[in-house]
């Protein structure tokens, strides 16, 4: 379905390792937390790609490495034909106009000492995008209006706004430079549901109106299903399944995706009580020392329950690669099988 289009953002073999320093004077590096460990993804123009996974799977690090906020250890990030990995701050600056980020926590990502006007105007001033004061005022006014806030409130400080409104300010700031791609790092997970819904609606509207592409990073699969066109599932630094939205939710093929979908409680008592739940054991292993072969095997319900010893051998020794399971649907499992879990 996407063969004719060129991706606007293309990530190949992205790695971000954080060194673990030993004790003592020399602070030698004794290992590495392999937060992102060889990740490929493509974002197409006008699409919302959901990136989901549990805490510690490397999804936020991926977002930051793509933006060069934390330089990648290895790999390549090509944005509109330009390689971003290895660029320094100065070289990155002109590119930042086109690719912006919204952070998770609206209580920490806005400077509490700046009025909203200054927060939203800052990127415009830094990039010298407005000729004079009047134009700047007009731009900020329209940005604030765009994100559904009252433009008369721009002389107020972040503390006077609710969480949802602060997140809108963060979105206005990210939109100021008219970017093509927004990396949204858990943009609604700090908000209460009734307020979260308004921000989700806003993000949907903005995407349509401004023709944006989103990399939507989240742990909440319900939100991801609602907003995404395609979904990538991460586990321990790698993508284990990618598919168009409904395909992923209706026919997941990777045991982890199946377990993840099955674990989420549905706000519908009759459905919720009649579901059969796949419960996987244990916790996510440490990314400093990931399991051999398939990274999910230590918790895999299939590995534990269905496979024979000879089949398990492959999981123990051979790392599964992303293989095609249909149009635009790939997953990394030796024994992948589409199963309906919802």
């Amino acid at each position: 379905m996407t063969t004719t289009r060129e991706p606007i953002l293309s990530v190949r073999g992205l790695e971000k390792h954080f060194p673990i320093k030993g004790g003592g004077l020399l602070q030698r590096t004794v290992g590495a937390v392999r937060a992102v460990d060889g990740l490929d993804l493509d974002l197409y123009p006008g699409e919302v790609l959901g990136l989901v996974g549990e805490s510690g799977c490397g999804k936020s690090t991926t977002g930051r490495a793509i933006l060069n906020l934390q330089p990648a250890t290895a790999g390549s990030v090509v944005f509109q034909g330009r390689e971003l990995v290895g660029l320094d701050r100065k070289q990155m600056r002109p590119l930042r106009r086109d690719i912006q980020i919204v952070f998770q926590d609206p209580y920490a990502s806005l400077n509490p000492r700046l009025p909203v006007f200054d927060i939203v105007a800052e990127p415009l001033i830094i990039h010298g995008l407005t000729k004079d004061e009047a134009e700047l005022r007009e731009r900020v006014r329209s940005l604030v209006e765009t994100v559904g806030l009252n433009p008369e409130h721009t002389n107020r400080y972040p503390a006077e706004f609710s969480g949802g409104q602060r997140q809108r300010i963060g979105i206005a700031r990210a939109l100021a430079l008219e970017p093509k791609v927004l990396v949204l790092d858990e943009p609604v997970s700090a908000l209460d549901v009734s307020i979260q819904a308004g921000v989700i609606n806003l993000l949907e509207d903005l995407k349509e109106r401004l023709g944006l592409s989103y990399l939507f990073i989240a742990h909440d699969l319900s939100v991801v299903r609602h907003i995404s066109d395609r979904v990538a599932v991460m586990y321990l630094g790698k993508i284990i399944e990618v598919a168009p939205r409904d395909e992923l939710f209706d026919r997941p093929t990777h045991p982890y995706t199946q377990a993840l979908l099955s674990a989420i409680p549905l706000p519908d008592p009759r459905l919720e009580r009649s579901r059969k739940r796949i419960i996987i054991t244990g916790d996510v292993p440490s990314p400093a020392n990931p399991p051999s072969g398939c990274r999910f095997r230590t918790r895999c319900q299939k590995f534990a329950g269905e496979l024979t010893d000879t089949q398990r051998e492959k999981c123990l020794t051979v790392e599964p690669l992303l293989e095609s399971r249909g149009t635009g649907h790939t997953s990394a499992c030796h024994y992948a099988e589409a199963t309906k879990v919802l």
Binding site: S194, Q196, A197, I200, S222, R225, H226, F249, I264, L266
Partner: peptide, 9 residues
């Protein structure tokens, strides 16, 4: 109504 649904296609 403000809850996105996992099971809504």
């Amino acid at each position: 109504g403000s809850l996105p649904r996992l099971d809504a296609s």
